[in-house]
C-alpha cells in the first residue's frame, strides 16, 4: 500500500510540474518573449484561465503527501523551513502581480507587475529544481527524524549541506531551462504573431542548455546518490523512464523544426515526465534520503496507517477521475489560440 501511494504522490507531483511548469515557464520568458503591452496581455491570457487549476495540483499533491506520509511531511517541511517561506513569498508575489496587472490598468505600474511576475516565476523554477536536487542528494536527517538546513553553507557536498550547493544549483538551473523551454512551447502554441515567434526562438535556445545540463546532471546523480544506480541495475525495466525523457527531448527539436506547435509541447511534457519518474524510480524506496543512509525516511517508515491508506485509495481514485474530467473540459473550453479583446473576462457587454 505504501508503494502504491509513493507512486500516486509521484504522479501528482509530475502532473503539477507538467501543468504549472508551463505557466511558470511562460512567466520566466515573459519579459524575453513579449515586448509590448498587447503581447504581454497575450501571454497572461494564455495562462489566465488555467493558472489557478494548475496550482491546485501543488496543493492536492501536498495534501496527499501529508495524508499518505505524515512523517515525511513533518520532517521535510520543518527542515526546509527557509526555502519554503521563500517559495511562499514568490507564489504570493506571482499571484498578486498577475491580479494587479489585470485589475489596475496603468502604464506606470505595468512594468513593475511584469517584472515581479517574471522574476517570481523564474525563481520558483530554480527553487523547485533545487528542492528536487536536495531530495536526490539527501538531507542531514538524524535519529530524531528531523533536520534543519540553512540556505547555503559552503556550497560543497559534505555533511553540513545547505539547500543550495553546486549540485542543487545545477539542478535548479536545469529546472529553469527546462521550464523556459516548456513555457516557451506553450506560449508559441497558444499565441500568434510576433510573441509566438519569439517564444519559439527562446524555447529553441533553451533546448540546447537543457540537453547539455541534463547530460551533466544525470552523470553526477549516479555518483551522488548510489541508490539510483542500484535501482536501475536491479530492475532494468526502469529504463523506460529515461528513455521517455530522451525521446521527449529529441521530439522537441524534431517537432520544432517541423513547426508542429502542439506536438513540440507534448514532447516537452514527455521529457519532463520522463525526468521526474526517473528520479522517483531512482530513489525508491526512500522518500527522503539522508546524508547518512541509516536515517533515510523510507516508504515503510514514513507511511500512515494501513486502514487509512486503503480508504484513501477509494476516494482518491474517484476524486482524480472527476478532476481529470474537469481539466479535460476546461482545457477544451479554452482550446485554440488566445485573442486579446478589450474585456478579457469574456462578458457579453
Amino acid at each position: 500500500m505504501g508503494t502504491i501511494w509513493f507512486w500516486l504522490v509521484a504522479i501528482m507531483i509530475t502532473i503539477y510540474v507538467l501543468l504549472d511548469g508551463f505557466d511558470l515557464g511562460a512567466g520566466a520568458i515573459h519579459l524575453l518573449a513579449a515586448k509590448t503591452d498587447e503581447e504581454r496581455r497575450q501571454v497572461l491570457a494564455s495562462i489566465g484561465p488555467v493558472l489557478d487549476g494548475n496550482e491546485v495540483w501543488l496543493l492536492a499533491a501536498g495534501g496527499t503527501l501529508y495524508f499518505a506520509f505524515p512523517a515525511l511531511y513533518a520532517s521535510a517541511f520543518s527542515g526546509f523551513y527557509l526555502p519554503l517561506m521563500i517559495v511562499l513569498w514568490l507564489l504570493i508575489l506571482r499571484g498578486a502581480s498577475i491580479e494587479f496587472r489585470n485589475h489596475i490598468q496603468s502604464a506606470v505600474w505595468d512594468p513593475l507587475w511584469d517584472f515581479l511576475f517574471c522574476t517570481s516565476s523564474l525563481l520558483l523554477a530554480v527553487f523547485f529544481g533545487a528542492a528536487l536536487g536536495n531530495v536526490v542528494r539527501g538531507v542531514p536527517l538524524d535519529a530524531s527524524g528531523y533536520f534543519f538546513e540553512p540556505l547555503w553553507t559552503n556550497f560543497r557536498l559534505d555533511d553540513e549541506t545547505g539547500i543550495l550547493d553546486w549540485y542543487t544549483i545545477l539542478v535548479g538551473v536545469l529546472a529553469l531551462l527546462a521550464l523556459m523551454m516548456h513555457g516557451g512551447l506553450w506560449v508559441q502554441m497558444k499565441t500568434s504573431g510576433e510573441v509566438s515567434r519569439r517564444a519559439k526562438r527562446v524555447a529553441g535556445r533553451a533546448w540546447w542548455g537543457v540537453v547539455a545540463i541534463t547530460a551533466i546532471v544525470t552523470a553526477l546523480t549516479f555518483r551522488i546518490q548510489p541508490q539510483v544506480k542500484e535501482n536501475f541495475t536491479t530492475w532494468p525495466l526502469g529504463f523506460v523512464f529515461p528513455v521517455l525523457a530522451v525521446a521527449g527531448i529529441a521530439g522537441v527539436i524534431f517537432e520544432l523544426r517541423k513547426h508542429d506547435e502542439r506536438k513540440a509541447f507534448f514532447a516537452s511534457c514527455a521529457y519532463l515526465a520522463g525526468m521526474l519518474t526517473s528520479v522517483v524510480f531512482g530513489v525508491y524506496p526512500m522518500v527522503l534520503p539522508a546524508r547518512n543512509p541509516v536515517y533515510s525516511l523510507t516508504v515503510a517508515t514514513a507511511k500512515a496507517g494501513e486502514y487509512g491508506l486503503k480508504i484513501g485509495l477509494a476516494w482518491w481514485i474517484i476524486g482524480i477521475i472527476l478532476a481529470a474530467g474537469y481539466f479535460t473540459y476546461v482545457y477544451r473550453s479554452f482550446a485554440g489560440k488566445v485573442a486579446v479583446d478589450k474585456d478579457s473576462h469574456g462578458y457579453g457587454d
Partner: peptide, 8 residues
C-alpha cells in the same frame, strides 16, 4: 491528512 487531502 484524510480530510485535508480530500479537500484538495
Amino acid at each position: 491528512g484524510q480530510t485535508l487531502a480530500m479537500e484538495g
